[in-house]
């Protein structure tokens, strides 16, 4: 009975902690999408510039914007990533605990079974 209670408790803990890990990735902590902000005025495209140069320039602009955005994004869930790690570590520990408990209990049952068998034989 106590064994069963312990098992269920472990399962319950695992579930609660799993809830934690799911909650950690909360919407409020993540960066919102950029949305449809009006395009930035860049002035008229100078026709004299060669197309390759223009492409290069736009590419560079895009890269810096992307890096910027990525950095923001990383910052925005640094905290939730930490809590996710804690929660997942805890889930893992509970699972490990469950496995160890099962192993110990199985060993006890094997010993008991052997004793029952030897009792019957003698």
């Amino acid at each position: 009975m106590r064994q069963a209670l312990g098992t269920w408790l472990a399962v319950l803990c695992a579930l609660v902690l799993l809830c934690g890990s799911a909650f950690a990735d909360s919407k409020s902590e993540s960066l919102k999408p950029l949305g449809d902000s009006p395009p930035v005025e860049r002035g008229p495209v100078v026709p004299s510039a060669s197309e390759a140069e223009l492409r290069k320039q736009l590419e560079a602009e895009y890269r810096t914007e992307l890096e910027n955005r990525l950095a923001q994004e990383r910052d925005s869930y640094a905290a939730s990533l930490t809590s996710l790690w804690i929660a997942n570590g805890a889930v893992w520990a509970v699972l490990l605990l469950f496995v160890i408990m099962q192993a110990l209990s199985a060993r006890k049952r094997i010993a008991e079974l052997d004793k029952l068998k030897s009792d019957r034989d003698s």
């Binding site: 099962q102 049952r109 079974l113 029952l116 019957r120």
Partner: peptide, 23 residues
């Protein structure tokens, strides 16, 4: 990991059955 839990529980339940049989 999850399937091995089935196997673990199976061993455990099986041992319980054997004990009941012995008793």
């Amino acid at each position: 990991a999850l399937v091995s839990m089935v196997a673990l529980r199976y061993c455990w339940n099986r041992l319980g059955q054997r004990m009941a049989q012995e008793r």
